[in-house]
Design a protein around this nucleic acid. Structure first.
Length: 650
RNA sequence: GCCGUUGUAGCUCAGUUGGCAGAGCAGCUGAUUCGUAAUCAGCAGGUCGCCGGUUCAAAUCCGGCCAACGGCUCCA
């Protein structure tokens, strides 16, 4: 018979040949590397027979399918080791995830880090035994009987939940086996580049009302080099962790007296305010009005808005003079008060209220994380009150604004999701049709790619969600645009139209950076703490070569400050090398060295933080190339150009 | 909220079997006056997260609470 290879060539193989046979017929190396096969697009075990005229691809560890197979098989390998070491532990599920796998076990005894090491050792032992991994097919009833006999109640539950009556497969390696669809590597000897990373509690079937299982996470790769590269990547991500950098760079702190509510230290507050100023520039250009509303409101307001019914569990409350107040979790009810203050004309619309005041949301303990999930924060949000005709142009304008702003931070790849009507919702289908198509046509008109999240919209309207990818490839959700017909209805908002009739406005809720706290956390990691000049808390540090040049240094710093730059002078009694090291570690964009030459010429010697390092470059330092001597005025002009352009490079 | 881990000087961390609380960096003082990633010396620094218990004696053992961390659930 014949098979077709990925390059389109045909190959003759004996009848009944398996994937492994095909691989062997192509070459010895490939046969050794084969861990699975793709037959007509479906991934199968290497010893699966191949039908005549099939399209065959040999799956090796380096391919995506190969890596998935390795990870899946490593999960099985771990489960076998666990059941060997801890008899009575029940198996549940063990899927492949990004970079690795996990397996959930039913056990009363949580695993310790010490256990993880023992499990790893046992796994290595099983790898060494190089046990063949073989698929066996059982009828549904046989499968249930088999796992019931073993007391594997979770597996029994899984089997009972599989629809239909098709036979089920188990994979056996040595004396151990597990229910599994497969495919798997041909033998345990093909595994080895793995590491168990953590243990955590996880609910059976992801439901918090169910039993808590013990989940072990692991990572697995094609070979040791890839594993080591991954470990290195994890370490790099750790070095960028905004909580670590926030401490090192004196940006923010927390107090046990205000759990999960960040304090911005002077340097962090500088970034915070720079971001607000940045957004305000666009507000001025695009016709937003900034307002400041109270932070606490009588709960009556939240009863009208629906927050009391739908959001109470996430709010802070207080009582005074026998009146109950709620701390606002969102700005919309406040903006609605302002809108409703007076009779509005269609000529006034669109009205765009923006606000940066603090919001508080009670997040369950255990869910908060650094700056990216907190209980006290501000958003760059705005509420647009528009006529139905204005919905589309306003959304298009917001789309352009969002792109413009994200580009400035150099976020690669913005993914847009359109979240459509959920099961539980307010308003008629006709209204939803309108709202969804308004969002969709704005997307289409602007030629942007998007995908649909069916049923993920807010109860009051559909939303667009904007996800960016940071410098090391991690996705973050930032902005959102939401169309809302419900709140104008609940608050009985009106405007007088051109026809002199009473009409209801539509609200657009939107945020671009999202929460400022969260955004700062994200950009700390995105820039690895090395903020672009316009955001850097300290833009330049003046480094006097010795005490003799302190006066000139202070004078220079004063000149720069007068020019609007954020400048420090390093007056410590240290040698230049130490001062440079300090400034580098603080990731200060410019270091201005002043010594005898500079005093004489009235200049500064500029070293950029990107300027390199003698040791690290491993070559003799070329000072002329690295440094530039320039007048103070020239430096001011250069820095101001960089700031005005919000340039990412120095 | 749930499962697990952690909490010692400003920071990073050590602290053995329950027996006087430790280091490096940072800080302060002094010397040095220096040319592109750490000058030298000295000094000071503690409610061992908080509360309670066991003990002659607790950073160490036990209980409770608080906070942080890794996940789960949640993210309107």
């Amino acid at each position: 018979m014949h098979v077709e290879l990925p390059d389109g060539s045909k190959r003759e193989v004996p009848d009944g040949a398996t994937v492994a046979d095909v691989a062997a017929s192509i070459g010895k190396g490939l046969a050794r590397a084969a861990i699975a096969g793709k037959v007509n697009g479906k991934v199968v075990d290497v010893y699966s027979p191949v039908p005549d005229n099939a399209k065959i691809e040999i799956v090796t560890p380096k391919s995506e399918a190969g890596l998935d197979t390795i990870r899946h098989s490593t999960a099985h390998l771990m489960a076998m080791a666990v059941q060997d070491l801890f008899p009575g532990t029940q198996v549940t599920i063990g899927p492949v995830i990004e970079n690795g796998f996990f397996y959930d076990f039913g056990t009363d005894r949580p695993f310790s880090d010490e256990d993880l090491r023992r499990i790893e050792e046992k796994m290595a032992e099983i790898v060494k035994r190089d046990l063949p991994v073989r698929r066996e097919v059982l009828s549904r009833d046989e499968a249930i009987a088999t796992f019931e006999k073993l007391g594997e109640k979770y597996k029994v539950e899984i089997i009972k939940g599989i629809p239909g009556d098709e036979p089920l497969s188990v994979y056996r390696q040595g004396e151990w086996f597990d229910l599994c669809r497969g495919p798997h590597v041909p033998s345990t000897g093909r595994l080895g580049a793995f590491k168990l990373t953590s243990v955590a509690g996880a609910y059976w079937r992801g439901d918090e009302h169910n039993a808590m299982l013990q989940r072990i996470y692991g990572t697995a790769w094609a070979d040791k080099d890839e594993l080591n590269a991954y470990v290195k990547r994890v370490e790099e991500a750790k070095a960028r962790d905004h909580r670590k950098l926030g401490k090192e760079l004196d940006l923010f702190m927390f107090s046990q007296f205000a759990p999960s509510m960040p304090f911005f230290l002077p340097k962090g507050a500088t970034i915070y305010n720079a971001l607000i100023d940045f957004v305000r520039d666009f507000y001025a250009r695009d016709g937003y009005s900034e307002v400041i509303a109270p932070i606490i409101f009588d709960t009556e307001l939240f009863k009208i808005s629906g927050h009391y019914d739908n959001y109470k569990d996430n709010m802070f409350f207080s009582e005074i003079e026998e009146r109950e107040y709620g701390v606002k979790p969102m700005n919309c009810p406040g903006h609605i008060q302002i809108f409703a203050m007076e009779r509005r004309s269609y000529r006034d619309l669109p009205i765009r209220y923006a606000e940066f005041t603090r919001l508080h949301r009670y997040e369950r303990s255990g869910v908060t994380h650094g700056l990216v999930r907190v209980r006290s924060f501000a958003q760059d949000d705005a509420h647009l009150f528009v006529t139905p005709d204005q919905i589309e142009p306003e959304i298009e304008r917001e789309l352009r604004l969002i792109k413009e702003i994200y580009d400035i931070f150099d976020f690669k790849e913005v993914r847009i999701a359109l979240s459509t009507r959920p099961e539980k919702r307010l308003g008629s289908d006709a209204l939803w049709d309108n709202a969804e198509s308004a969002l969709e046509s704005a997307l289409k008109k602007n030629g942007v790619d998007y995908h649909i999240n069916p049923g993920e919209g807010a109860f009051y309207g559909p939303k667009l969600e904007f996800q960016v990818t940071d410098a090391i490839g991690r996705p973050w959700q930032l902005g959102t645009i939401q169309l809302d017909y419900a709140l104008p209805e609940r608050f009985q908002l009106h405007y007088i139209g051109a026809d002199n009739g009473v009409h209801q406005p539509v609200m657009i809720h939107r945020a671009i950076l999202g929460s400022l706290e969260r955004f700062i956390g994200i950009i700390i990691e995105h820039f690895a703490g090395a903020f672009p000049l316009w955001l850097a808390p300290v833009q330049a540090s003046v480094l006097p070569l010795s005490e003799k040049f302190l006066d000139y240094g202070r004078e220079t710093a004063a000149t720069l400050r007068k020019a609007g730059l954020r400048v420090e002078t390093d007056e410590s009694n240290e040698k230049l090398g130490a001062k440079i090291r300090d400034a580098q570690l603080k990731k200060i964009p410019y270091m201005l060295v002043v010594g005898e030459k500079e005093v004489a010429a009235g200049t500064v010697s500029v070293r950029k933080r990107t300027g390199g390092d003698q040791e690290r470059l491993g070559s003799p330092l070329n000072l002329d190339r690295l440094l530039r001597s320039m007048s103070v005025d020239d430096f001011v002009a250069e820095a101001k150009r960089g700031i005005a352009a919000r340039s990412l490079t120095l």
